[in-house]
Nucleic acid binder design. Structure first.
Lengths: 189, 189
DNA sequence: GCACCCGATGTCAGAGACTGCCATCACGTA
DNA sequence: TACGTGATGGCAGTCTCTGACATCGGGTGC
């Protein structure tokens, strides 16, 4: 496999995920990932900013999905309902990828550095949602708080969705968590 | 300044903060921090797990404060009110440290790696609060969601508190944010 | 005082992440 | 066929972080 084999980026992602599963993130070197993908370490760092980033490929698209769905909600919709629409859209986008998500979560669960990067990605989602809410006219701090709460719902639901024994759909878990959030603040009036 | 000067840890923290302010986090090496503190690089890594951690000294105590305050709330208190008590306690613990907090936030704002670690520390607070809520008998996912929402309130309020033009107390900002959270979910019933 | 122990520090070597720079290669195009 | 362009390889170098071992200072028992 010489130069110019197609999909270098995808090969690197696959090799990284496989190796992280086989021997763990900490026991895998970038040189090994690159070698398995038929490339060099230097090329790995041209495709991904660092060793963690290779596991977070679709995060830009997910952020875009959140932002555009919030923006597309009817102007009359309450902020929390605009966020709920984004949660539905996101849940739908994961529907066909539960197995992959579970494998990936298994790797994340075993390594603190990767969890740290996951938090950064979630914060990026929250910032994008907050920005979209501000564009809808919602002032601070309501925009940031609504966004943070919405992403917390997604995070909790997603973690449950990837748990081994869980069989419910992600959208069901999202709705359940969102309802919990609402009743949580309501009963504390 | 030879061996056995007192407070090596504190000297490292001070040297690190000063250098991160003077030339930026990325332009500062651990060897420079250690040299300014009259120590060696190796000793730095005995006191702090990595180059970021030196800026997050009090985070264990803060987590303990959150956890114990939630645990100490009356059994009759609603979960959100137990969290609110913890937010008050935390706000109070920062009262005398606004200048230091502002300097530190200035460094964090300039560097993504440090923001990433900050998110990890906030996630640790959230996990501790969720754990304390579970011990009070609150089931999942309500415990995690209440904790995440509460920490989001703290995060938003704390960021406002360290903004240059802000003059209000942290506890005022916390209360304002908490009220926003409540009304946010309520009006979406 | 003296011998001893122990925790904090120093010294050194080394692996691995990441970067800058330049050479090389494959492919399209004039 | 010559040339430009983008992707890749090669290589040196810096820096973070770790393991192993030596050394120092202070306390403790005698």
């Amino acid at each position: 496999m010489g130069r110019w084999e197609p999909n270098a980026r995808g090969r690197l992602q696959q090799a990284a995920l496989d190796l992280y599963i086989e021997r763990g993130y900490g026991q895998t070197t970038v040189a090994e990932i690159a070698r398995r993908a038929g490339l060099t370490e230097r090329t790995f760092f041209r495709h991904f900013a660092d060793k963690r980033e290779v596991l977070f490929a679709g995060s830009d698209e997910l952020r875009e999905l959140f932002a555009s769905t919030v923006a597309a909600a009817p102007a009359t919709a309450a902020p929390i309902d605009a966020v709920a629409a984004a949660l539905d859209a996101a849940a739908d986008s994961f529907r066909e990828r539960r197995d992959h998500a579970r494998r990936r979560q298994g790797v994340l669960a075993a390594n603190a550095e990767l969890q740290e990067r996951e938090l950064t990605k979630l914060a990026g989602l929250s910032a994008a949602v907050a920005d979209a809410l501000r564009r809808r006219g919602l002032p601070e701090p309501a925009a940031s708080l609504t966004a943070e709460a919405g992403i917390a719902v997604f995070k909790v639901a997603f973690e449950r969705w990837t748990a081994a024994a869980e069989t419910r759909d992600l959208s069901d878990l999202v709705h359940e968590s969102l309802d919990e959030l609402k009743s949580m603040t309501k009963c504390a009036d």
